[in-house]
Design a protein around this nucleic acid. Structure first.
Length: 135
DNA sequence: GCCAACGTTGGC
DNA sequence: GCCAACGTTGGC
C-alpha cells in the first residue's frame, strides 16, 4: 500500500469532472520520473488529488482502480496510465501555502519537485495532510 | 503574463 | 558523452 499525489489543472480535468465520470483515466504523463511513479502504483493505493495552476490545493483523495495500463493518448507504447476513482472530498482543502508552512512537509516531493505531476507521499506525510484536511 | 526550475533535445 | 539551447510546467 503506497500513497501518492496526482496533479491536474482544474480547467482541464477537475475533481468535479472525476466525480461526474465516476472513474477517470490518469493519462498524458510525458515525464520519466512521473511515469516510474505511475508504474509503481497498485490497485487500492490512495492518492491526493491536487489542483495545479488554479486552486493550488489538495481537494480530495482518489483510489487506484486499475494499475499500469498503456496510455490511450500515446501511440508509441512507451507511456503508462492508471485509472482512479474518487474516494473522499476534503471538507477543508489543504492549500500549497499551508503545506509549505508545515515543517513536517518541507521535504515532500510536491514542494521539492514542484513540476512532477505524480509524486510519492510517505505514510507520515499522508497522516499530516489528512489531519490538516480535518481542519 | 512572467519567470524560475527542470527535463529533453541536438550539435559537437 | 557532454553541454548549451530550447520547451514545458507551475507558482506567483
Amino acid at each position: 500500500m503506497n500513497y501518492w499525489l496526482v496533479k491536474s489543472e482544474p480547467f482541464k480535468y477537475s475533481w468535479d469532472d472525476l466525480v461526474a465520470e465516476g472513474e477517470g483515466t490518469w493519462d498524458g504523463v510525458r515525464n520519466y520520473a512521473a511515469r516510474n511513479n505511475l508504474r509503481a502504483m497498485e490497485v487500492g493505493d490512495e492518492a491526493f488529488f491536487y489542483h495545479s495552476r488554479e486552486g493550488l490545493e489538495i481537494v480530495g483523495i482518489v483510489t487506484v482502480s486499475v494499475a499500469d495500463i498503456p496510455d490511450p493518448t500515446d501511440d508509441t507504447g512507451k507511456w503508462s496510465a492508471v485509472k482512479v476513482k474518487p474516494k473522499r472530498k476534503f471538507d477543508h482543502p489543504v492549500t500549497l501555502k499551508a503545506i509549505k508552512a508545515e515543517p513536517k512537509l518541507a521535504d515532500c516531493e510536491l514542494v521539492r519537485l514542484s513540476r512532477l505531476s505524480v509524486a510519492r507521499i510517505s505514510a507520515e506525510e499522508w497522516e499530516v495532510i489528512c489531519a490538516m484536511a480535518e481542519g
